[in-house]
Every structure is written in C-alpha cells, then in structure tokens.
Design a protein around this nucleic acid. Structure first.
Lengths: 249, 249
DNA sequence: ACGTGTGAAAGTTTTCACAGCG
DNA sequence: CGCTGTGAAAACTTTCACACGT
C-alpha cells in the first residue's frame, strides 16, 4: 500500500483541533462586543449564545486553550480576549497585500474588520495601468510589476487574491515565490501551491449552491409533505456543514 | 440569540452528508470546465485532482448520489454535470435579492458565477435614497421600502445580506417575514432566525484570522526547529464560512 | 486490466452528563 | 448552589484496500 508519499497527520496542529481554531474568531468577536459594553464576566451559556454555538462545544473549545474560567462564575472577558488573540496570533501585526482591485478587492480594502484586528493592508496591487496611483480606501494602488518588491519590503506573508480566475494561479505563484506563505483565495479556481503554503478559499457561488440544496429539500418536503412535525432546521449558523478541510497538499 | 434553541437536528438530510454537499459545487465547477473543453469522460483520479480533493473522497461522495460511473472507465462528464446540478437544485431558477449595495454588494451583483449557475439577481436593494434608481451590474437599485413587495412579486426565497452589521438583523427579520427561507450573510453578526430558515455566513476577517493562526505556528516551528523534515502543510483548500472578530475602531 | 463502488478501519468533531471547585 | 472542565459515548468524516463489473 502506501505510495511512499503518505499524508501528514494533517492537523498536527499539536493541540488545538482545526474545528476549534475556526471558531475562535467567532468567540473573539462576541467577547470584543462584551468588552466594549464593559461586561466583566460571561458564562459559557451566554457567550455561546452570542457566538451562535452551543455551550458544551464552547467549553470544550476553551479547554484546549487552558483553564481560563472560574467555576461557578464564568470567564473574565478581558482576559479571554487576550488569550484568544494571542492564540490566533493577533497580538502581532500582519501586513497583507490584496491583489486584484475590482469591486471585491475594493470591498476588502474598505472592510473595517481587517484593520481592527491585527491586519494591515500593506498594499493594493492591480495589473491595470489605469488603476495605478488611484486611491482605494485611502491606499494607493500599485502596479503588479512591483509585486515582489512590495512583498519583500513589507515582510508580507499573507496575500489575498481577488483577481479574475484566469490569472489567479500566476499571481499565486509570484506571491509564493516572493515569500508569501498564506493565501486567501477569492477567485473560483483551485490553486496549486508547494508544501508549507496555506490556502484558504472563499467562494461566493458555492455558498449559494449549498443554500439552494437545502432550499430545494425544504420545498420537496413541503410538497411531499407528511403532516405533523415541522422540521426544525436552521440555527447555529456559520460552520453549517462546510469545511472541506484545509490542509494537506 | 433566542430562547428556544433548536440545535441542528439538521442534516438528517436523508442521505447525502453535509460534508459531501459542501463539495458538490466544487466537483460541478471542475466538471463544467471539462465539459467546456468537450472532454467526454473523466476518472475519479483526474476529477479529484481538478477539484483539489483526493479520489477516495470523491468516489465516496459520488456513491451517495448513486452509481453514475462505469468501472474500468470513469464518469461521463455531461451526465455527472446534470446529476450534480439536479441534486443541488440548480436545474431550477433561483431568484435572489442582494440587500446593501456597497462595494461588496456591487461585487456580488457583478459576479458572473451567480448568473451562470441557476441564480438570478431579482433585485438590488439599498436603504440609501441616493442609490435609488442607480444601475449596478445593469440592474436598478431599489429602495428598501419596497423590500417586501419585491420578495413577494418575484417569489424570492434566497436573500443575500451585505449591509453594515448594525442593520443586518432587522434586514434579516424583514426578509424572513416576507418569505425568504435561506440567507447568505456577509455582515459580521450572528443572525437570529426562526426554525426552518437557513443561514450561511461568510466572513472575510475570520478567514484571515485562521490563516494568521497557522502562519504564527509556522513561524514558531521554524524558530524552534531542527532542520530535516520540511513540514508538508497547505493545500486541499476549502471553504469554511464563519465569523470574525470585529472591533469597530 | 482498470477504475468504480463500498465495507470496514481510523480519525475527527460533537454531544452528554457529571465530578469537582469556587 | 452554579458553572467550569472533562472523560466517555455518539455522530460524523476521511481513508484504506479490495471485490467486482465492464
């Protein structure tokens, strides 16, 4: 068996399960909101509700980080914010570049959620000379000829691709060659990258297709309709079912 | 959130596992590309490579749909395209509305991937009177006062929310009250919906945070690192919609 | 031969339920 | 008490490996 090249134990993340990591940002957002309202402590039940998950899951998730709660009381909001931020690596500054400044690239550049949490848009890059020097979200758009220099000068390790799919792979190759090791891909293409580079994909039309699947099912049920029980369905949004892993090449 | 939480009994989707559903759009995309190049058949190995998954997983996934392949040969591309489309409910037309026509809403309106796969943007809706009547992607922007009428007149069951987080919940409530039963939420908020309504969330900053986590880990390993083994890591990309951490600066 | 289709094993994630601590 | 932290069970997903049809 085994063709020599076996896979990584994948989430060798040594410790925190991938599913938990994917939820930490959720908790962090809920906690940040509480922090702004100066709420000092929160129970797993309350926080879980705010984050849209159930409390057992949340407690289990936190147990991977350590014992940060107080029995009979709950969690200290500020302390947890700090611990999760640290775990996620958000206590440091991450310069990112966005390549492809169309509507989507512009939307991302304007997105407050980035800057507010450790991410700094180091540059906007586009291949269109007409875009050069134009300002988007207060940042000058630079030409893709300078991509390598920009990456290196700013120590960028995270790149966001919002180009048309036809050029996504070559942009990706250049980013990787220049030193980027994490890529967030919005282009509807499968990117090929060397080992050691992480790719996450966000695909707008895939999400809609998954909704359509469930929508269709609802319609079918209604039609073929057994009476009685209304099927409970939705709830606990987010990681509904998706999560085609992220890892091994 | 609310009081009577129903947790996902969900996915007794009668058959197809959620994880498989989430990959069907991926296969469909790869197959469509093959179809366009007039490739008549494809093996699980080839298709898996094109979709960025492994072949065992793909075969298992397809086995839930039925036996659509031919042993010793592979899968008929056209036939599979049809079967998957049907399974996903893409053989029918899904009118959608996009609420909140900022950069992101405009990006979505312009996104070709929608129209090409059964989705039709029935209307763009914004609360800003200044946007009213303006054309985005060839579609007139309508005022949110007309939301209910638009939903009903067009039989819309899927809504996309690209508003600021502060109004997302109320937009959601109005959509649901008007008859929408599936919502794709881009606002960084947890939406509360009644049972029977599906919500999927796409959050840009969450994806970045997950990348940051892995990036940090790489850096740590590298530092602590004995040479030798290069850790395989990335690839087999995947969606994974979730939520972010936001701190309104 | 060849590659699909699939039981069975392995791995991961969620849920349960309760011991134990403040 | 009330609520965290966690073993243990249940559910789900991925991977293996090979029988079987073409």
């Amino acid at each position: 068996m085994a063709t020599g090249r076996t896979h990584r134990p994948a989430t060798r993340s040594r410790g925190i399960p991938e599913a938990t990591v994917a939820r930490l940002p959720l908790y962090l957002r809920a906690l940040t909101a509480l922090s702004e309202r100066s709420v000092p402590t929160v129970s797993s039940e309350e926080l879980a509700a705010a984050a849209g998950v159930n409390s057992a899951k949340l407690r289990k998730d936190f147990s991977y980080l350590g014992s940060y709660g107080t029995r009979g009381v709950g969690y200290d909001v500020e302390y947890l914010v700090y611990q999760i931020s640290r775990e996620l690596g958000l206590t440091q500054d991450w310069p990112v570049v966005i390549v492809g400044i169309g509507n989507l690239g512009a939307a991302l550049a304007n997105y407050g959620g980035f800057a507010s949490r450790g991410f700094r848009v180091a540059a906007l890059i586009d291949a269109d000379p007409a875009m050069e020097g134009r300002q988007v979200a207060g940042i000058a758009v630079r030409h893709s000829d300078d991509l390598e220099r920009i990456i290196q000068d700013n120590g960028v390790s995270i790149g966001v691709i919002t180009t048309p799919p036809s050029v996504a792979q070559q942009v990706c190759d250049r980013l990787v060659a220049a030193g980027v090791t994490s890529i967030l891909n919005f282009a509807p293409t499968v990117l090929t990258v060397p080992d050691g580079v992480d790719v996450r994909k966000v695909d707008l039309s895939i999400e809609l297709q998954i909704l359509a699947f469930h929508e269709q099912r609802k319609a079918g049920e209604e039609a073929a309709n057994a009476p009685a029980a209304a099927r409970g369905d939705a709830s606990e949004q987010g990681p509904d079912g998706d999560v085609p892993a992220v890892m091994p090449a």
